[in-house]
Nucleic acid binder design. Structure first.
Lengths: 211, 211
DNA sequence: TAGATTGTTAATCGATTAACAATC
DNA sequence: TAGATTGTTAATCGATTAACAATC
């Protein structure tokens, strides 16, 4: 199958596969990996792996498996990681801080693709002007201007719940295309923006059920 | 329907509903909420809300909706939030720090239920002994002992990928029941432990697809 | 070649949506 | 009462799993 309208559930698993390929142990000397092995390391059944990869337009060789390097490239391409992805973070509290660190550390230098942190925003004079991973914290008032200037299309929201909707609106006017929201409110996507809502406390409560 | 074997997809939405109920705006003067209103605020269809709540054994009144207070209690009960939930964090880098802050700030004091942070662990001498939200950072070597002493059954893992599996094993022997893993590896659950894997970079790559 | 593993189709399973009688 | 909204059943939709012919 070729990659037309890949369902979102599948898309969500592709980065997991990619992560596995990138972190194969030293002693993994094959240059090929089977759907069994890849599934094992991704927490997915082999059948699922093959189905997903075929939808993604990847192809392996019968009797052998998938060429690791080829598969990696294919996945990066689909996920747009063959281009540099420029990201801004709004809200530089402890969570925003941690995310900034995470992005700069995990995606720079040695990787052959980048998720690049290009801007940080807040309103608190206490953090304004601070520099994290080489990036300065700007006032949110300059958001629209900076968005144009630095050409980022993806934003991480890490502000308090009360401020999140206003920030979202600001993103909308600035032409942002994708938002990862950590504020504990369900933000709904204005026209043409893709939002993923994520909330640590919801994960904790979810787990609590199983105690 | 009564709450036997509620599917995990449903359980995952219950905390979302609970969060909505807790954060209803000041000017929301009703003491009752309809599946339409609740769905709207949760990003879920009204039919879904009713189905979920009926599986959870909650009940509303035809023509009116759900009593907010009653529903809140019901959801808390199901999610075990009627008891105090004691949580430990392993790995006090910037992410561990942020999570610690988040838990102590969001779940203490004014809420009538608690997710209580009771212990922090690391190996880095640089953070050992540091106190966050009133909790001291202990060496991981004392984990088993502290687990017994402080009776926490839920753990958040925020260590580097390489260390995660070892930490997981340590949790298993210490009798931990639920783990929220932020390390960028898929950890699989040893016998009797519930694990949720979560990874910021996977969310970012997932979103990148839609750019 | 023989053995292994893919890609894909068909079967199953589960989740979401629609619809509506019951009833507040 | 009339209007609104639940709880639940049945219909639909979609995702996962099984199975196996194709083929490296």
């Amino acid at each position: 199958m070729e990659q037309k309208n890949i369902p979102d559930v599948v898309i969500r698993r592709l980065p997991v596969y990619l992560r596995v390929l990138e972190n194969l142990p030293e002693d993994f000397h094959e240059n090929v990996i089977s759907s069994f092995e890849l599934g094992e390391r991704s927490g997915v059944t082999p059948a699922q792996v093959r189905k997903d990869l075929s939808m993604a337009g990847a192809f392996g060789k019968q009797g052998l498996g998938y060429d690791i390097h080829v598969l990696q490239d294919k996945l990066k391409k689909i996920l747009n990681l063959d281009k540099e992805i420029r990201v801004a973070i709004i809200g530089v509290g402890s969570l925003g801080h941690a995310i900034a660190r995470y992005i700069t550390q995990r995606y720079s230098a040695e990787r052959d693709y980048h998720l690049r942190l290009v801007a940080l925003f807040d309103t608190d004079p206490g953090v304004l002007g601070e520099v994290i991973g080489g990036i300065e914290v700007h006032h949110i008032d300059s958001f629209r201007e900076k968005a144009r200037e630095l050409k980022f299309r993806m934003v991480v929201i890490a502000v308090p719940a009360e401020a999140a909707q206003a920030v979202m609106n600001e993103c909308a006017v600035a032409g942002i295309e994708a938002v990862l929201n950590f504020a504990p409110v369900h933000l709904k996507a204005p026209e043409g923006i893709r939002i993923h809502n994520t909330d640590l406390s919801i994960d904790l409560m979810h787990l609590a059920y199983y105690l």
